[in-house]
């Protein structure tokens, strides 16, 4: 079982790195959305720093969502998804590994890019640690929840907008806790409470979301 998981993980990462531009696109989108805000509301640094927590988190939310649209598409089109559904191993474990591989290749890069963009928005250095940590805890939840939507919409022609419609409302707790943590650290308040909550949401998502993803994939494949 473990060997199979490692093999699957290797396959997924190799497939992802075969098309590096698709991995880079969400990062470019993330940076682009963040740089739109100073252009829209003006370059005054104090104003930018106060809205930075929200801006960074909303941009991260959209970038993760965008990257998930094609998560299952190629597997669906070439038929390997059907093999997965028929495989003797539990489907929820397989999809958990797939989402994990996807997060390590695209979500983690986004987390690592975020301090740079935070500095550009005028966030003080002392808050960058909380920014990193909150995104590190939050983006896996975003990936897992988004994968539920991606599984349900994989068979549809134009699933992208529908995916956003289905999943964005479910992202709201992560958004509130993540940007709340950043705001608290900006004001010099303790942030541990937010981060613990984010961590518990992550545990919840890791344990429950794979079941929903598997159920969604089964429905989409059966169609």
């Amino acid at each position: 079982m473990l060997r199979l998981c490692i093999l699957l993980f290797k396959r997924e990462t190799r497939l992802l790195f075969r098309r590096p531009m698709e991995l880079a696109n969400p990062l470019v989108f993330f940076a682009l959305v963040i740089s739109l805000f100073p252009l829209a509301i003006g370059p005054e640094s104090r104003l930018l720093a106060t809205i930075a927590p929200g801006v960074v988190w909303v941009a991260a939310l959209l970038a993760v969502l965008l990257s998930l649209d094609g998560l299952f598409r190629s597997d669906y089109e070439d038929g390997s998804l059907e093999q997965w559904v028929l495989a003797p191993q539990p489907l929820s474990l397989l999809v958990l590994i797939k989402v994990l591989a996807h997060w390590l290749c695209s979500g983690l890069a986004l987390v690592l890019l975020s301090p740079l963009l935070g500095l550009m928005l005028g966030l003080p250095e002392r808050t960058l640690g909380v920014l990193l940590l909150s995104l590190l805890l939050g983006t896996p939840v975003l990936s897992l929840l988004g994968a539920v939507g991606a599984a349900l919409t994989v068979g549809l022609k134009r699933g992208g907008l529908l995916l956003a419609l289905l999943i964005l409302p479910l992202y709201i707790p992560v958004l509130i806790l993540g940007s709340g943590a950043l705001q608290a650290s900006l004001q010099g308040l303790p942030t541990a409470g937010y981060l613990w909550w984010l961590a518990s949401l992550m545990v919840l998502a890791v344990s429950l979301a794979p079941l929903a993803i598997a159920a969604g994939l089964k429905i989409s494949v059966a169609e």
């Binding site: 349900l152 289905l166 409302p169 479910l170 929903a212 429905i219 989409s220």
Partner: peptide, 10 residues
């Protein structure tokens, strides 16, 4: 079925 999964997650 898809709506069922979505509303349970919701």
């Amino acid at each position: 079925k898809a709506c069922a999964v979505l509303s349970i997650v919701g």
